[in-house]
């Protein structure tokens, strides 16, 4: 039997299996900690830092921190929410996020976090970097303007032999997401959909399915991101 541990998040008593990642443990206890790079069962990347919490008074990313007995975690505080909002704003000014022309609009996690934190305008100046749209593979548009470098696709999407279809190229300011064109040519429809759904923004789009849901029926039109997690345990 695996050991059960008790800890608190914003004063609420929670239980989890020892060693479970804080972000997953919180979700199992009905508490939504915002995330962009994390996916359950994937090796944590800890790249976006939007899940930053205070664990026993210290800043920690919830997606890389295993729960320990007696942990005192702060998540939904004015200070942390402002840090998270600032991260969302930085992502909006760093890439070129033109929501009105994006197929992912309404189903986009980054946009939904903008709504959650009521981002009316980013506090930082826009960068407007020139980035390319890679449209030469048969099933996928890879829109580099929108990539937020969460590395979900790199970690999750593999062909039958376990080879990565997506990869990073460059470092720092020149970092960009790339697609292996040969492997991408053989992607099944299911794998393409999986890639599109894993992408938290509109950087990976399956061709010929754009704007399939009308405004008002999309994922985040009526309910804020994380409501599904918070509802389960009400």
């Amino acid at each position: 039997m695996s050991e059960t541990v008790k800890f608190t998040i914003d004063g609420k008593e929670c239980t989890a299996v020892k060693g479970q990642l804080l972000i997953d443990a919180a979700a199992d206890n009905g508490i939504y900690i915002p995330l962009l790079c994390h996916m359950r069962d994937l090796v944590p990347a800890g790249s976006c830092r939007i899940c930053t919490c205070k664990v026993n008074g210290r800043y920690m990313s919830a997606c890389t921190t295993p729960v320990e007995p007696g942990m005192n975690i702060e998540s939904n505080t004015a200070e942390l929410n402002d840090i998270r909002k600032a991260i969302v704003e930085m992502l909006f000014v760093e890439g070129n996020h033109f929501c009105p022309s994006c197929e992912k609009s309404g189903n986009c996690d980054l946009q939904a976090l903008g709504y959650k934190y009521q981002m009316m305008v980013p506090r930082f100046p826009y960068a407007f970097e020139r980035r390319e749209l890679e449209a030469s593979t048969p099933k996928i548009f890879l829109e580099k303007n929108r990539c937020i470098f969460c590395k979900r696709c790199v970690r999750l999407i593999k062909d039958e032999q376990g080879r990565s279809i997506f990869a990073f190229k460059g470092r720092g300011k020149t970092l960009e997401i790339n697609i292996d064109k040969k492997l991408a040519a053989n992607m099944s429809d299911d794998l393409t959909m999986k890639a599109m759904n894993a992408c938290p923004v509109g950087a990976i789009l399956k061709k010929e399915v754009g704007f399939i849901n009308s405004i008002g029926t999309r994922k985040y039109d009526k309910e804020p991101i994380g409501s599904d997690i918070e509802k389960i345990h009400q």
Binding site: N96, F98, C99, P100, S101, Y126, F128, R130
Partner: peptide
Amino acid sequence: ECAIMGGLPAMRNGI
């Protein structure tokens, strides 16, 4: 959006 971040006309900004 256009007033706030340039909007669709700003798609030319990298060029």
